[in-house]
Amino acid sequence: MKAACLGAGYFAQFHYDAWRRMTDVDLVGACDHNLEKAASTGAVAFTDLGDMLDTVCPDILDIITPPPTHAAAIYAGIKAGVKAIICQKPFCTSLDEARQATELAASAGIPLIIHENFRFQPWYRAAKLLIDEGEIGTPMQLTFRLRTGDGQGPDAYLDRQPYFQTMPRLLVHETAVHWVDAFRFLFGQPTAVYADLRRMNPIISGEDAGHILFEFPEGRRALFDGNRLLDHAAENHRLTFGEGLFEGTEGALALSGDGALHLRRFGQTENVAILPARDWSGFGGDCVFALQKHVVTGLKDGQPFENEAADYLFVREVEEAIYRSSEIGARVEL
């Protein structure tokens, strides 16, 4: 299959690396407004998306650019007749725009998969398998403490993603949506949220800390505790982005900052290593590669895709509910 990418910014490096490592995919094009950046990917470089699509005729269009570009890029991919489109999150600039893009792709019969890669991280895949197999009994509580340690002072985010400073919505729109999706991957669809968001670094525009409580059927709960100014015990703070605890009636799974996952049985003190720490390729346990490989496999074998746009719209709805809850100081049902 042939893949072509739109965007050659900071995070795009992980997409290009993943495509290059796939023996059954040819990376045939890279498009960016900066031709030098596009050329640095090693693929044929373009500055115009339409030119790239007409010239290389890719099977897969991988959109790795900010939300304001998504709708037009999706439309261009549909018009060019690609077999599938992958679009980075956050998906479009608004829920309404995301719905319109979803409808366009659906009417054209082209799979539109949102690049929400955290659910493809190996620790969440392993935790999901163990939870489904009953290894922790009846699941009751998920907790994740986000501690990226990159949000302090006037230079916060400038070395990697400087646009974070001016985003009117940061913690939830850019970051916590990863765990909205990871939590629903592990526990199913939440039914209500309560959020308390705040801005701790005065030099940025959006929120950078907060607590979000998710309600699930059968009394289950999940807590996202995020603070980008604080850190956690890890050499690479961007491997897991923090620490997690997944608890049930018969045990608990603990995720540490080195990517290790441990199981402790109820009533016991010792921990059993389920997923040991290791050096992973790419980003976040090689989750970018895992997601892109999932799309290629789905196209080849006809298997259903995770996080198709129509399904992912629910994550955008939850995001809006979170901001609404923090604004009014009350629980919001979904």
Rank of each mutant, 00 (worst) to 15 (best):
P190Q: 03
D54M: 12
L129N: 12
I274L: 02
I136S: 02
G285M: 01
I114S: 03
V56G: 14
D59T: 06
T93I: 12
P304Y: 06
F11A: 05
I113M: 00
D286W: 02
L95Q: 11
V332C: 07
F314N: 07
G206R: 12
R184C: 08
K89T: 08
S256V: 10
E218Q: 12
L170S: 04
H262L: 15
E235G: 11
Y312F: 15
P190W: 02
V318D: 00
R147L: 13
A3D: 13
D181H: 09
H262Y: 14
E133S: 13
L313C: 07
F305L: 09
L197Q: 06
I60M: 02
H262D: 09
F214C: 01
L61V: 05
V296F: 04
P168Q: 04
D150A: 14
R169P: 00
Q141V: 09
A252F: 10
G298F: 05
E97Y: 03
A106L: 04
G206P: 03
D279G: 12
V193H: 09
T166E: 06
R198D: 13
A195F: 02
V25W: 04
I131Y: 04
L223D: 04
A290V: 04
V295C: 03
L129E: 14
F144E: 03
N271T: 10
L223W: 04
D311S: 14
R221K: 15
F289N: 05
A182T: 13
R331T: 08
T47Q: 12
N307F: 01
L95T: 06
R198V: 14
K79C: 11
F241Q: 03
A30D: 03
E207N: 14
D62H: 14
K293G: 06
F120N: 03
Q165W: 06
T41E: 03
Y10W: 15
T41I: 01
